[in-house]
């Protein structure tokens, strides 16, 4: 589809602002699509232990536990970046410091993911070996 060239230039400007925005969207979509499936698998609990235990056995598979680590990372990124967005939205002066705020958010994310990766990674390795 042919589009008129915007007088304001391209939307995509790169750098911290765009990357945090892309990641916010990608992680948000990932989490809501998982949630759709997760409501259904949890609802199986209403059909008793045999049915439910068969369903949650999926979550005890080491490959799925790797995806679980990705999911936890997506939730934590989306949460921390959401706080960053709210800081800039409700305190306009913060937008002058949006680059250091972005790196502070990224540092907090990494700091949170180190123990989480250690704990879930250990579970995966224990399940494998």
């Amino acid at each position: 589809m042919a589009r008129k060239k915007s007088v304001y230039g391209p939307i995509y400007r790169g750098r911290e602002g765009q990357w945090s925005w892309i990641l916010h969207r990608a992680t948000g979509v990932g989490v809501i699509l998982f949630l759709f499936a997760h409501v259904v698998d949890t609802a199986v609990v209403g059909w008793g232990p045999d049915a439910y235990n068969r369903v949650v056995a999926v979550y005890h598979n080491p490959f799925i536990q790797f995806l679980e680590l990705v999911l936890v990372g997506m939730v934590i990124y989306h949460a921390f970046n959401g706080v960053r967005i709210m800081i800039i939205d409700f305190w306009p002066k913060a937008s002058e410091y949006h680059v250091p705020i972005f790196y502070a958010t990224a540092a907090l994310f990494v700091a949170a993911m180190v123990p989480v990766t250690w704990i879930i990674g250990r579970n995966i390795l224990e399940a494998l070996f």
Binding site: G48, Y52, Y59, V72, I119, I120, N123, A127
Partner: peptide, 16 residues
């Protein structure tokens, strides 16, 4: 997420 997937044995302990 922290309760179900990280603390104790994480999702390993989740069953009926």
């Amino acid at each position: 997420v922290l309760i179900m997937h990280v603390i104790d044995e994480g999702v390993e302990r989740v069953d009926f």
